[in-house]
């Protein structure tokens, strides 16, 4: 169940959209912020708010890599595995991250702090290899810089940073 206030906000967002589908990503992100990840219940609620079927919400939710349909840690680490970062040697960074966090790709650290997933491109191919942690992008990475970034993010707490892009 989502709070009445959130529901009203989302309904207002949909009412202002040209079509319900246009507002779908916003609705899913807000629900994800509320639940921590986009639960089955949240898919049902999004469907109701958007006037779509649950399957139609699922179609959109599973398309976007920053909508999570499984439980995730407090902060998401996206590591670009696309061609430019591959050229720049992202594999070394990935191996380092896996070792530091003690997880495989797709896994969440034991303390629930980080979830490591690959992503396809962040649009900054000249600065590879790069990762994003929460809403911050770290570029031109070396294993040392990765350690610093992780330390920084650990210190900055767990303020539900998956809520990227929201004010």
């Amino acid at each position: 169940m989502i709070p009445e206030q959130l529901k009203k906000t989302l309904e207002a967002r949909v009412a202002h959209a040209f079509s319900a589908r246009e507002a779908a990503v916003d609705v899913m992100k807000d629900l994800q912020f509320h639940y921590g990840w986009l639960t089955d219940e949240a898919v049902g609620e999004a469907a109701e708010i958007l006037g779509l079927s649950r399957l139609q919400v699922e179609e959109l939710a599973t398309f976007y890599e920053m909508i999570y349909r499984r439980p995730v840690g407090n902060k998401m680490i996206h590591i670009c595995d696309s061609i430019s970062c591959w050229n720049a040697g992202y594999e070394k960074i990935l191996d380092h991250l896996k070792a530091r966090l003690g997880v495989e790709v797709g896994g969440t650290t034991a303390d629930g702090q980080f979830t490591l997933v690959p992503c396809c491109c962040m649009g900054r191919c000249g600065d590879g290899p790069l990762i994003s942690i929460g809403s911050t992008i770290y570029d031109n990475l070396t294993p040392e810089l990765v350690d610093q970034a992780l330390e920084l993010e650990r210190l900055s707490g767990s303020a539900a940073p998956e809520h990227q892009g929201q004010a």
Partner: peptide
């Protein structure tokens, strides 16, 4: 129909 479709990507 609205109950069948395509999910995921790539």
């Amino acid at each position: 129909g609205t109950d069948f479709g395509v999910t995921g990507s790539a």
